[in-house]
């Protein structure tokens, strides 16, 4: 660690301690799975010599918290989580504009997301949805693994699905938005209702069902390819299929909240998160998303080009409250 960083970090810590007492220097809402959040907390603390309050929350939960608990008690930085939630927060005035100095190093989709959010969120990583079948769990029913979105609504799979509540899980919401995009409204509505009828069990977070399906609790779920590959751990009973109709994707983002206290520190953390160095430390080591910096290595999961046949998913449209309510209204909680 360079001496300037130490001094800078120390000053930062001192100033924030004077201003805010003994509280953490930065409060982070972290939406990827917990290993990433833990890595980040440790890395940020070490790199910037700061105290970090890291809370693991799904995108929907963060959005909910920002709506219901604004002010000083809220978060300063929102790291990761599906982009539609970030866009909705941006539209609702819960974030503030940022312009990291290394924006020009980011891939086009990252930059594009920043434009879409009215310069309040930067695209941090991306990933696509896949259908996941635990063949061993499905074996007693002698059914085939699912290969299309439409299969999920097939009544033969009644009770075999585990999908998180789309009102809190960005993964589930992205899946439903993808179905809405792929099918005519009436058909999409019917399919979403049929899928919700096939679901057995409840979950609030996107990768919790993935882990439970891999464990054999249920046979079928949906998830981001990077989440499932991370958890695969050599299991050969798992089928991972890009949906035959085309798939949806997330652009996960990083944002500074409207009520962020130490904006200078938050800006530095954002910029740091967008560097190839930080991202290369994460990719293929901790996680498998496609990161935003041009110089970041390719994720080994997404070497498979078939996972990149994504639909022209309208991020801005599906982040509107109207679209969100419309989609959620079709979902029947199991």
């Amino acid at each position: 660690m360079r001496i300037e960083s130490v001094i800078g970090g120390g000053l930062l810590w001192l100033s924030s301690s004077l201003l805010y007492g003994e509280g953490p220097d930065v409060r982070i809402a972290c939406s990827p799975f917990v290993a990433v959040c833990e890595w980040l907390a440790e890395d940020f603390s070490a790199t910037f010599d700061i105290s970090v309050d890291m809370t693991r929350m799904s995108s929907g939960e963060v959005l909910q918290a920002l709506y219901t608990d604004p002010g000083e008690q809220s978060f300063d930085l929102w790291w990761g989580g599906t982009g539609d939630a970030h866009l909705q927060a941006a539209q609702s005035g819960l974030l503030q504009p940022i312009e990291p100095a290394n924006l020009h190093e980011q891939l086009r989709w990252s930059h594009y997301f920043w434009e879409l959010s009215d310069y309040q969120s930067v695209g941090l990583y991306t990933g696509t949805l896949v259908l996941i079948t635990n063949r061993a769990a499905l074996a007693p029913s002698s059914l085939q693994p699912v290969s299309c979105w439409s299969d999920l609504g097939d009544p033969r799979y009644r009770g075999q699905l585990l999908i998180a509540d789309p009102s809190t899980s960005g993964t589930s919401f992205t899946a439903l938005a993808t179905i809405m995009h792929l099918y005519e409204e009436a058909e999409a509505t019917r399919l979403i209702q049929e899928i919700s009828l096939n679901v057995e069990g409840r979950s609030t977070s996107g990768f919790d069902p993935v882990e439970r399906v891999l464990a054999g609790e249920r046979a079928i779920t949906i998830g981001f390819a990077h989440d499932v590959y991370r958890a695969l751990d050599g299991q050969d009973q798992i089928s991972i299929t890009p949906p035959c109709e085309g798939t949806g994707y997330e652009i996960a983002a990083i944002s500074m909240t409207r009520d962020a206290r130490n904006t200078e520190l938050v800006e530095r953390l954002v910029e740091y998160s967008l560097t190839a160095a930080a991202q290369n430390a994460l990719v293929n080591e901790v996680t498998h998303q496609m990161f935003s910096n041009q110089a970041t290595e390719r994720s080994d999961v997404y070497q498979d080009w078939s996972l990149l046949d994504v639909i022209n998913y309208d991020l801005r449209f599906y982040s509107t409250e109207r679209a969100r309510q419309q989609i959620l209204s079709h979902w029947r909680r199991p």
Partner: peptide, 11 residues
């Protein structure tokens, strides 16, 4: 037709 693929091609 999508930026994800062009990005990965670029990479």
């Amino acid at each position: 037709q999508n930026l994800l693929k062009t990005a990965e091609i670029e990479r």
